[in-house]
Write a protein that binds this DNA or RNA. Structure first.
Lengths: 165, 165
DNA sequence: TAATAAATGTTATATTATAACATCACACAA
DNA sequence: TTGTGTGATGTTATAATATAACATTTATTA
């Protein structure tokens, strides 16, 4: 079994973002159909906005963009959609940034480890099963039942380190 | 070398909190003396308030208590003190709760893993060197330089699981 | 002691998030 | 087909978290 997966890479190099977005939306649709949940136009729109690029997006930035569609949108509109998407595993919240990123693998059970670049703001999402296992072992020592894992590693990505030279 | 340390335990059982607090304050004083930083009365007071119990404390709760000393205190008072204490490694911020906990080991270099109980709110701080190592290995694959690690594991502590039966 | 730097005070405001209630839209039962 | 119930969205207000900007005080040191 593969120990470490890259669920989503750093600044995906010259990729066709349109395809990338479409594939995420398709996976989302599929996922919701399977779970009997409704990916309504609003929820889909918010998901699109989260996926606009590969950086964490802020709720109020999403709101500003929604207002371009429909000027009356208000905070609850965004937060409800984000809550739904998080419950479905379609987006993750980066707690240390109060921002949201899309998850392209809503159906793969995983614990996420995020690498977050201070400088450019881009994010990679990893799933290392050894880390998950170690956390489990440590939690077990305390009789602690894990419900949710948040691992956010901040620093500088290669590209930004190179630029800094 | 010890692989996994408990930097601070869950709901420390029947302990003499006064001693525990004094020891933290003493370590803080020592630490600041060594680093040439000033643990002013205000900063010390905020540190005390953070240490009042072994649960994460909110900035505005600290502010309310400060106001009992001196009614004119305002948010920047608290946030500045917390910023200072974080820089010195005397408190950690739990990002997923927007709350702060004291760290009794400001001088031990460590990466913290927090176990956070949803139900009772208590927190344990661990430092597992294997996890740190694995994160480093994974970061290295990307040429990513780690500056800060945030690991917050949420779930239910033994005591709360037992009660729930 | 004057000059400087560091810390704190103070007022205002920015940012993030939720409560509460109204309305709408859709499934499906009568 | 029309009610009727549920879930989704709209709307207004406000709560909770955090920072900017500038004034004043306190400590350090030249």
């Amino acid at each position: 079994m593969q120990k470490s997966k890259v669920l989503s890479p750093f600044k995906p190099a010259r990729h066709k973002h349109q395809e990338c977005l479409q594939s995420a939306l398709k996976a989302a649709k599929q996922h919701c159909d399977n779970s009997g949940q409704r990916l309504t136009p609003l929820r889909k729109r918010v998901l699109e906005l989260v996926w606009e690029n590969h950086e964490p997006v802020k709720a109020y930035d999403i709101l500003d963009k929604l207002k371009q569609d429909k000027s009356s949108s208000a905070p609850p509109t965004v937060y409800r959609a984000l809550d739904f998407l998080q419950e479905q595993g379609l987006v993750h919240k980066i707690e240390s940034l109060n921002a949201y990123v899309g998850c392209g693998k809503p159906d793969e059970i995983h614990s996420s480890q995020f690498l977050i670049c201070y400088k450019c703001g881009s994010v990679a999402e990893l799933d290392n099963s050894e880390i998950r296992k170690l956390l489990q072992i440590n939690a077990d020592k305390f009789g602690f039942r894990i419900d949710e894992e948040m691992i956010e590693i901040k620093g500088h990505c290669q590209e930004c380190l190179d630029e800094g030279k």
